[in-house]
């Protein structure tokens, strides 16, 4: 497994290079911010017709992580759909695909700000889910501990001999973990942004996703 090992609230976790979080003891896989149906939503609102393949690409990667981990529980940490309309408008074959992925395991949709209500797909819908000692929710809350969240789409930028390498990244400290966005059509927020400076402790780390999961101190110096 290509992952960075760490602990949160005493729980051993693995940040996979794919951007998914693996909790071995619970056989639990967590992904955040899938933004399925994003291209449909943009076109519906009169925007540019983007290549309509992001849902199948995201599901393909998710299927691979499920095949790798044989997860018994899956948590989608919010903003799984670009909006509730996008969930409704998913093509039939993509809905069936999700149903097939759900077969034989517990599946939890956490509500996000993009998809704040239930969708007509299997699985349970929750505002947040505590599995002691951790709590899974979409947006990090001040003062929380043992918290796993998404929402911010963190990405880390490293300067390497004159070139900039920017990759989606997990960020964590002793209180919380923020997952990178897993969806194909997602951008990122630089870890140098004020949002992370206020949320994360100074000793926070970032785990870059990509070919290999690489941990380093969370880049935070202001520009």
């Amino acid at each position: 497994m290509n992952a960075h090992d760490f602990t949160l609230a005493g729980v051993p976790l693995k940040a996979l290079n794919t951007g998914a979080l693996w909790w071995p003891d619970e056989q639990l896989l967590c992904v955040s911010d899938l933004h399925l149906g994003k291209s449909e939503r943009i076109a519906r609102r009169g925007g540019v017709p983007l290549p309509p393949y992001e849902t199948r690409d995201t599901l393909t990667r998710l299927a691979a992580d499920l095949a790798l981990t044989h997860a018994r529980t899956v948590i989608c940490l919010g903003d799984s759909f670009d909006d509730l309309g996008a969930a409704l408008a998913l093509p039939e074959d993509e809905k069936l695909w999700i149903t097939r992925l759900q077969a034989g395991r517990r599946w939890v949709w956490i509500e996000g700000n993009h998809d704040p209500g239930p969708v007509d797909l299997g699985g349970s819908h929750l505002a947040e889910l505590p599995i002691a000692p951790l709590t899974f929710r979409h947006i990090a809350e001040a003062g929380a501990s043992g918290e796993v969240s998404g929402h911010y789409h963190p990405k880390a930028r490293v300067l390497l001999a004159g070139r900039r390498v920017t990759r989606p990244a997990f960020v964590y400290d002793s209180d919380r973990l923020i997952l990178p966005a897993y969806g194909t059509y997602t951008g990122g927020l630089d870890t140098r942004d004020a949002a992370f400076r206020t949320l994360m402790r100074t000793e926070a780390r970032a785990v870059l996703t990509g070919k290999t999961a690489i941990a380093l101190p969370m880049p935070r110096t202001s520009q």
Binding site: G10, D173, A215, L216, P217
Partner: peptide
């Protein structure tokens, strides 16, 4: 790029002292 990135991560970790921080953050 992967090689350089891994080197840089190692360097940053050791200079920041994060590599030997308390139990919560220690690399397992």
């Amino acid at each position: 790029e992967e090689r350089l990135l891994a080197e840089e991560a190692r360097r940053l970790m050791s200079t920041s002292g994060l590599a030997n921080i308390g139990p919560e953050l220690a690399e397992s």
